[in-house]
């Protein structure tokens, strides 16, 4: 009846995927560890595996990043798209007055995780705004943790008391996350009191059920006909940044920069689109359930029927 030792050892090895026993040396009378261990000893106590040795950098690693370093560890990346601001944006789709295009600031962040809480930070903040030349996109990327304070300071300078923030799910995600970061950096929250148009809600109202989901990538593909080449999904952003932080190549991080840049460019198209669509719908009042297919060729306001 009693299994052999070999049998049990085999089972034991199989169960090794989740090592249970955490043997550690006992404590002294006060519940303190009797000696101060080094990391290796602590691992042995806790039965934790040593980390996999870091892959040695093979020859020249590409650590290049676009933009300029405007403060230690903080890079500013700028881009300009020749798409001028629409002349007027009706605010009815978000139940507000007409939106002054020169006050609008589209913004989006890339973060170290999705877990939320004080341990999650925005390592990349992008904003775009219309000016005479078209859409001006600015990105702030921190390449050291110490640069976070400078990043928060710089972003705050981009905001004016009459700025209208425009985001996609920013009310529940990006803005609270930044609020937490400003609080931790002991800085005033520059987002407090600003008008904020979160395009997720009007998008949902218009397209609920039309597509598989209402993620920005889906909406821009289905509604704005924007197709991204070689896009890195947002979920890969934390790993890309961590990789760079640990001294490895910048390849993935550059793709994150491109992805994030497109996000704020897309927002600048989505806002006018939603605004006009709401107006169109209003004129077709009563036709409930009109299924809205992809709206082709809306890439600039100039092409839009007035």
């Amino acid at each position: 009846m009693t299994p052999t030792l070999a049998q049990l050892q085999a089972l034991h090895a199989q169960a090794g995927a989740r090592p249970r026993a955490l043997p550690v040396p006992p404590l002294d009378a006060m519940g303190r560890s009797p000696r101060q261990p080094d990391v290796h000893t602590l691992r042995q106590w806790l039965r934790l595996r040593d980390p996999a040795p870091a892959t040695p950098a093979s020859g020249a690693v590409d650590r290049s990043l676009p933009g300029t370093e405007i403060a230690p560890g903080l890079r500013l990346i700028e881009a300009r798209l020749p798409s001028p601001a629409p002349s007027r944006i009706a605010g009815a789709f978000d139940r507000r007055d007409a939106i002054d295009t020169h006050r609008v600031l589209f913004f989006d962040t890339e973060t170290t995780g999705l877990a939320g809480g004080t341990g999650t930070r925005a390592f990349l903040v992008a904003a775009s705004a219309w000016n005479q030349q078209g859409l001006h996109i600015r990105q702030l990327l921190m390449t050291t943790l110490a640069a976070e304070s400078a990043l928060l300071g710089e972003f705050a300078r981009w905001l004016a008391p009459d700025t209208i923030l425009v985001s996609y799910n920013g009310k529940s995600y990006d803005a609270p996350l930044l609020r937490t970061r400003y609080r931790l950096a002991r800085r005033a929250d520059p987002l407090a009191g600003l008008a904020h148009v979160d395009l997720l809600y009007p998008t949902r109202r218009q397209y609920r059920g039309a597509f598989a989901n209402c993620r920005l990538a889906t909406i821009e593909r289905e509604v704005l006909n924007i197709v991204r080449a070689d896009d890195l999904p947002g979920s890969a952003a934390p790993a890309a940044w961590k990789t760079y932080l640990h001294g490895r190549a910048s390849t993935s991080l550059k793709r994150v920069l491109a992805h994030n840049q497109q996000d704020v460019a897309t927002l600048a198209q989505l806002l006018p689109h939603l605004s006009t669509h709401a107006a169109t719908q209003a004129t077709r009042k009563g036709k409930v359930g009109t299924r809205l297919g992809p709206v082709a060729a809306i890439t600039t306001s100039a092409e839009r029927p007035s």
């Binding site: 990391v39 691992r43 170290t112 999650t120 943790l145």
Partner: peptide
């Protein structure tokens, strides 16, 4: 020593005088 262990595991990151949380969890 605990922070060093967490740093080895890539959960925290030591930069200068600080150990900062960088994990996605």
């Amino acid at each position: 020593v605990y922070l060093q262990l967490l740093a080895e595991d890539g959960v925290v990151y030591r930069e200068g005088e600080r150990f900062e949380w960088i994990d996605d969890s």
